[in-house]
Design a protein around this nucleic acid. Sequence first.
DNA 1: TTGAAAGCGCTAACAG
DNA 2: CTGTTAGCGCTTTCAA
Lengths: 345, 345
Amino acid sequence: MPHPTLEDVAARAGVSRALVSLVMRGSPKVGEERRAAVLAAARELGYRPNAMARGLAAGRTGIVGVLLADLHQPLYARIHDGLADEAARRDVRLLLTTGRGRPALERAAVEDLLDLRLDGLVLAGPRIAAADLDRAAAGCAITVVGRAVRSDRVDRVTGDAAAEAAQAVAHLTALGHRRIACLDLDGRSASLRRAFLAAMDGAGPSAHASVLTVPDALSTGPGGLPDALGNALDGGPGGPPGATGPPTAVLALGDPGGTAALAALLRAGRRVPEDVSLVVHGDPPGAGAAGVTTVGPDARELGRLAMGALMDRIRGGVPGGPAQRIGVAPVLTERATTAPPPAGA
Amino acid sequence: MPHPTLEDVAARAGVSRALVSLVMRGSPKVGEERRAAVLAAARELGYRPNAMARGLAAGRTGIVGVLLADLHQPLYARIHDGLADEAARRDVRLLLTTGRGRPALERAAVEDLLDLRLDGLVLAGPRIAAADLDRAAAGCAITVVGRAVRSDRVDRVTGDAAAEAAQAVAHLTALGHRRIACLDLDGRSASLRRAFLAAMDGAGPSAHASVLTVPDALSTGPGGLPDALGNALDGGPGGPPGATGPPTAVLALGDPGGTAALAALLRAGRRVPEDVSLVVHGDPPGAGAAGVTTVGPDARELGRLAMGALMDRIRGGVPGGPAQRIGVAPVLTERATTAPPPAGA
DNA sequence: TTGAAAGCGCTAACAG
DNA sequence: CTGTTAGCGCTTTCAA
């Protein structure tokens, strides 16, 4: 008998199956005597309830499925910490999957989760199509975290692009920088670019902003990032018309490894932070170890709020109404790549 | 009707439930006509099979549970890559959990996995007690990867400590180092320390080994790592009797962040690699970004082999015989912290 | 080939 | 308080 069942326990304890079921769920309406007998029988047999059978019969599992876009990104480990914090508080278990950063695998992973009929799903950083998302949300409570999605059927918890850009700009201007370049390494950060520009607008008349979008950020050859960046910093193409000199600070967006911009700056012959300061947006791998100053949402808080929103929906706290849109305040982690601008600048 | 069932599909297609079941599983023994009708009905209804019900009825799930000791360690992301590679090849799905590095949570996570009655479990880097492991293995195929466990009931895939130490020593001696210190930052790496000593023994009479164990590696105050390391490198306590000078290279074991040893070296006033070379064992976060040379098992291969071993056991390829012990060859990743010793040394 | 019947292990009313 | 009775959605003999 590899796995004793409820029935085995009932037989050994000399009671009915239903009574055992009640005891296993900690119901208060069972006599002390019988309860002890059941517990003893269960222990002796090494009984463990079958979660699938339980879920099937009860119609709920007490489990929330989580899709983590990419296990190699520390961002998702931190989001998971937040999810797990809140899940523990609410006595919910978590089951994870990942699409390993590939949309096709991710889609399959979400479908696997859907097939399990869990109580709800948290999708962290999904690249999933909006149509798929809507379809999935029809049969399952879903919260998306860390990515803007176009769907009214799912709750959404994200960082606040405007606040993040503003905080980065505030940090740099407080250090004395007036000419700041925004470097978009994947071309997908339109809202952050806009937020950067808006923040610079608010930084007074002496502030000059420039934006450089480099789709192929990983190329280091001629025409690659170091070249483009070098030009931009020299006031070449990409430099702002009317600027009184080259930028003394860079805000990098979409840096896949957290150090691409730093490496490019160094390759272009700039010292960091002596010649130019660098702030990277997000929570990319290596940023901490390389001492890069970063700005981005508090990932753990992102996770906590996401799990909270999901549980509210599941438990009906929020009457199936319109999806929630929750924003999280940014955090700027000052490390070694930001300093006052060079004296001559 | 939130979730159509087999029965709904059968009704719509005008066939019996069993027939739909056959079609959904791709059985060849169904007429073309009916199969098409069933498929059409399923699509129209948006039918998705209920994995729990299926698992309960079939006695297998096609799912393997995976415990990842810590999502913040890139090591486990890499092991997962290997697991997923192999799982995809064998048409198995993966469901992950983590104990977030805490034994109590980890234990709970494993029990949750056990309760689901999946086809098997892979435990990556578990801190689980051997007794718990034996008990779990009684009812479920289990493979442990990345950690030595004392159990005859589970398969085990790990790195090869002797080969790893040997490769680190070989790399350093090839660069010209003769006096090498082994720095154990968590005191738990006894087998690696022994392997280091053995490798140094084999490196010829001019090779001098020393070992320094620092339990409280994260302290940077007086008596902390930088101090201790500085003393050792000066030939103070920890330096080998009879050595002809201080070590010119360090092999760091159990470095939690991959850069603790590097930071300590720098704080102790050493230049790396000009004054002293550094090799870190394992696959800790930040090592890549900080340019630290590392040696350790090929984590992805670790994952592949673990999944292979598990599936062999599940599918009876290996007749429930004694547990397998599989070793994986080491990989040395040369980065920027190793160089020839200073000329004067 | 197809359909009917019997569970998988558990929960959830309901009647005693 | 306790036991009985139905299922949850699916797979799987076994006949037809």
